[in-house]
Amino acid sequence: MKLAPFALALAFAASPVIAQEVAQGDKIGTEIGAIASALSERGYEVRKTEREDGKVEVYAVREGRRFEIYVDPETGAVTRVKEKH
């Protein structure tokens, strides 16, 4: 079928948009600005960032789910992802 390659191309083209959720250990940035834009690229709507106990804490919403994401500004790695229920 002629549609198959097209669909395949579309799937690949779309894959950056269907972004990955962040997980513990992901390096997403050492600066608040970089962290916020990395999260935005992964489909998070960043609501608030603040420093807490030496970590950057990000309040974000993704697909109707609420997250608190903690990042170590030294390493740029996510140290904890807490979903609020």
Partner: peptide
């Protein structure tokens, strides 16, 4: 604050 709409809204 517990709602999706206002979560993290200062």
């Amino acid at each position: 604050m517990e709602s999706v709409a206002f979560f993290g809204v200062e």
